[in-house]
């Protein structure tokens, strides 16, 4: 058995949960797109080129409102800003990936990140090919799911009002998952409170950038407090 087949066989079981998740989210996405009169071709193009669920859901807003490329650009940067931190965590793992590296980075979505960063591989598996197949399989599930949705949306017609709540539900579920770890709670609360504050002050159309700035400031202050507390405890021990 050559090393690629071996890596593919090792990668597949890890991607099964993503398969179910992406199928549903992808179908919902395809249906939403077709409910706005964007057929399978557009859905395919989007899922192939962007491969970022939340940004693609968000992009439906850009496609259905007044043409505003700058807003589309900024909102996508903001919604995907978390990828910066995935990238920082993957610098080491992906450093010897060679010709596979561009695709690995291209496909570093939340789910791929969580598999790659949490998996300990047996020695006889080529890790770069393993990462490659995890990324490729997830990408394929996402494209297939959204195409299935686009097809279903064109065949069956039902009231899709409220289906866009799937994005909110996704974030709430991620939030709960993070909340279970106590260390994550302070930054999570900072994120919510600063955003609500900026929403009230700046209004619903322009609160995102101020929120990011305020969150960054709050987290920076929080860090000082954190290190000071740490130093105090250490002095106390001495």
């Amino acid at each position: 058995m050559n090393e690629k087949t071996k890596a593919l066989k090792a990668a597949f079981p890890y991607t099964i949960p993503v398969f179910t998740g992406f199928t549903f989210l992808g179908i919902a996405y395809g249906i939403l797109m077709s409910s706005k009169d964007y057929g399978a071709g557009w859905t395919f193009l989007m899922s192939l080129m962007v491969f970022a669920g939340s940004a693609q859901y968000l992009a439906i807003n850009f496609l259905t409102s007044v043409f505003d490329p700058i807003n589309a650009f900024l909102m996508t940067l903001i919604i995907n800003a978390r990828h910066l931190f995935y990238g920082i965590s993957m610098l080491d793992k992906y450093k010897d990936a060679g010709k596979l590296k561009p695709y690995l980075i291209f496909g570093l979505c939340d789910e791929t990140f969580s598999i790659v960063c949490s998996t300990e591989l047996p020695r006889d598996i080529d890790k770069n090919w393993f990462y490659f197949f995890v990324t490729l399989l997830n990408h394929a599930y996402w494209i297939l799911g959204s195409l299935l949705g686009a097809w279903a949306g064109s065949k069956i017609s039902f009231n899709t009002k409220g289906l866009d709540f799937v994005l909110t539900a996704l974030f709430v579920v991620i939030f709960i998952g993070q909340w279970k770890n106590k260390e994550n709670r302070k930054p999570a609360i900072i994120g919510i409170l600063c955003s609500i504050m900026c929403l009230i002050v700046f209004g619903q159309d322009s609160f995102i950038i101020p929120s990011m700035a305020v969150i960054l400031i709050a987290l920076t202050i929080q860090r000082k407090e954190y290190t000071e507390n740490k130093n105090l405890t250490e002095e106390g021990i001495q």
Binding site: R82, F85, F171, F175, A188, G191, I192, L219
Partner: peptide
């Protein structure tokens, strides 16, 4: 920032969805 920002970001995104 790499440790704390992902959590704060999800908070922001929830508020964004409910804006």
């Amino acid at each position: 920032l790499g440790q704390v920002l992902p959590y704060a970001t999800i908070g922001l995104l929830i508020v964004y969805c409910l804006r």
